[in-house]
Design a protein around this nucleic acid. Structure first.
Length: 222
DNA sequence: GCGACAG
DNA sequence: ATCTTGTCGC
């Protein structure tokens, strides 16, 4: 919808990106989500061709059965280098393109990356939630910011803090695997974010929506 | 100045 | 993230 506008307003300079983040961070809402969720979207982004291309992979699962029903991909030339804290500016253009290709709009997005567990409180999941208007959860595979105690047993989650604020959870989703970093992105609260991730775990380290999107991003979906 | 640092 | 196969361990 707002893509046409996107190209002209999308910042590339690091200083401009940070300035925009500070501005957008105030709009992030973490109030509890209300309403029925029928479709869960999974988002992952790859950078094939030694990073020259940006490939966004999106999966859409039935929230009741967790069956994969739709998927979409979009490839764009990579515009920006990877800079810790500015990942959303590198990934989102392709993600928004893929999102527009889905036949049904997701009611919830699970993103490979952080939500508010970010230096300025606006990681990729928060940024995507804001610009898409869809509730979003960040499911990171490693830490960007935050302090926490390591969860020792499978299924256990420990609260994660940053500057005294509860920003999410560290969840041990599988034995002998590094924990997941769960943080709300936008339109949902920390506990609901954790609940949805737990609900979509199917015996693997990553929740099904993101796991399938990861396969899709590298042509391994089957 | 030094160390940390999503994907 | 990407470049890349088989292999060791739980």
């Amino acid at each position: 919808m707002q893509h046409l506008k996107l190209k002209s307003e999308w910042p590339i300079r690091a200083s401009e990106c940070r300035a925009l983040q500070n501005q957008l961070a105030d709009q992030v809402k973490l109030r509890p989500h209300r309403g029925v969720i029928r479709w869960i979207g999974g988002v992952d982004v790859g950078f094939p061709g030694r990073g020259r291309q940006t490939l966004a992979a999106l999966t859409l699962l039935n929230a009741d059965t967790l069956a994969l029903e739709y998927s979409a991909r979009a490839v764009l030339p990579t515009r920006m280098a990877y800079i810790p804290g500015l990942l959303s500016f590198r990934e989102l253009p392709a993600v928004l393109e893929a999102l527009a290709c889905l036949p049904v709009a997701p009611d919830l997005l699970m993103v490979d990356g952080q939500g508010i567990a970010h230096p300025r409180g606006i990681g990729t999941a928060s940024h995507l939630g804001l610009v898409s208007g869809i509730p979003a959860i960040g499911v990171g595979k490693s830490r960007l910011v935050g302090t926490f105690d390591a969860p020792d047993q499978v299924g256990k989650a420990c609260r994660m803090y940053h500057n005294g604020v509860h920003i999410g959870y560290v969840l041990k989703s599988r034995a002998r695997a590094n924990p997941l970093f769960i943080s709300p992105g936008h339109g949902i609260d920390p506990d609901q974010a954790l609940d949805w991730v737990r609900y979509t775990l199917t015996g693997y380290r990553l929740p099904k929506p993101t796991r399938l999107a990861d396969f899709l991003s590298r042509d391994r979906l089957r």
